[in-house]
């Protein structure tokens, strides 16, 4: 159906063709067209330092990425201290309903129609968002990388079969499938995470497969085969480390996407009914949008900034790990 290069584009529009970033090697020409021997040294001069220190430095020098990292850390902190800062059920009624933000010092962000503390909801909502985001991503990455590397490495009929399966899952519209899965399985934090993983692994699998197919042909893999290395060693020690950069970038985007999906599910009333989530807060506030729009506005902001932070991190990682276009930005 759709070609495979496109999928690579999807997750990493920028592939890892090496070149020095301007900040570090100001003396290298950066016209990639120069394919003459002159350019070879410069083009390959800076294939990632394996320790990753240079990438880390490049990442930390990027103000956007740094902002993302700081905000995300803050959110993690919020999620961790939520039970201490706001003990008790955030779904319980604690004050007068419809207190606007700032109206009552005890509820700095106000209360909703049931008198629930909005700030407490936001704190506890961070827990479910991050939990679902991380769990779904971990599961999706695990399955996707396994399937993708098997298909990409072995090729042949293994590839044919796995690609068919990937194709089927990629054809099913993600969110519609997600709704069906959650509706069938009955919503809870776990089923929502698993369902999101089910709809998101194919993207990882395709990306991994494409990377593996490309790297499989490299001479150092051929060398490993001719030296008698066994498949697991080649897969895990030779290919996977080189396939990781785009996958790392994808991971951060996946967490962001998972958080968006969870919030959309909760907004539609398909989230875990026993916990408060940013999406469900918006869903509850939606009927009151004419009178108390802050009830939808505030949890929305929490989603936007968390997702934005993750995407900024993803972009920063991309620039640091695949420094091809970073020169054009800096």
């Amino acid at each position: 159906m759709t070609t495979e290069t496109a999928v690579t584009h999807a997750a990493t529009p920028i592939q890892s063709r090496a070149s020095a970033t301007q900040a570090e090697k100001p003396d290298t020409p950066q016209w990639h067209n120069i394919k003459a021997p002159d350019a070879r040294t410069t083009r390959t001069a800076s294939v990632s330092v394996p320790a990753g220190r240079r990438e880390l430095a490049a990442f930390l020098r990027n103000p956007n990425a740094l902002f993302g990292l700081v905000f995300l850390s803050l959110m993690v902190l919020v999620a961790l201290i939520a039970p201490i800062a706001f003990p008790g059920d955030p779904l319980g009624m604690v004050g007068k309903p419809f207190l606007w933000p700032g109206q009552d010092a005890a509820f700095p962000l106000g209360t909703d129609s049931m008198g629930r503390n909005v700030l407490a909801g936001l704190f506890h909502g961070a827990r479910i968002s991050l939990f679902v985001g991380l769990t779904a991503t971990a599961l999706g990455l695990g399955v996707g990388i396994t399937v993708g590397s098997l298909a990409g490495y072995f090729g042949g009929w293994v590839d044919d079969v796995l690609v068919r399966i990937i194709e089927i899952f990629q054809t099913l519209p993600n969110f519609v499938l997600l709704v069906v899965l959650v509706a069938i399985a009955q919503p809870s934090a776990t089923t929502v995470s698993v369902a999101i993983a089910i709809v998101s692994w194919p993207m990882v699998a395709r990306l991994t497969r494409a990377e593996f197919r490309a790297i499989r042909e490299k001479d150092y893999v051929v060398a490993a085969r001719s030296l008698g290395f066994r498949h697991p060693r080649i897969i895990f020690k030779e290919i996977l480390p080189n396939a990781l950069p785009p996958l790392i970038v994808t991971a951060s985007v996946m967490v962001a996407t998972a958080i968006l999906m969870e919030s959309a599910l909760s907004f539609m009333g398909l989230g875990d009914p026993n916990v408060v989530s940013w999406g469900s807060m918006i869903g509850n506030g939606r009927e009151l949008i004419r009178t108390a729009w802050y009830l939808t506005f505030l949890p929305g902001l929490a989603i936007v900034f968390t997702v934005l932070a993750l995407n900024l991190i993803g972009d920063g990682l991309n620039d640091a790990l695949n420094p091809r276009f970073s020169e054009e930005r800096s």
């Binding site: 968006l260 907004f267 939808t296 936007v304 997702v307 993750l310 972009d315």
Partner: peptide, 27 residues
């Protein structure tokens, strides 16, 4: 690319990319 318009638009695009559709709908 690399200049101010690119950076501003890049951030704007990333913001669009991060906003849940239902929320922006309500807003």
């Amino acid at each position: 690319s690399g200049r101010l318009p690119d950076r501003l638009l890049s951030i704007l695009a990333l913001l669009f990319y991060s906003v849940p559709g239902f929320w922006i709908g309500l807003m």
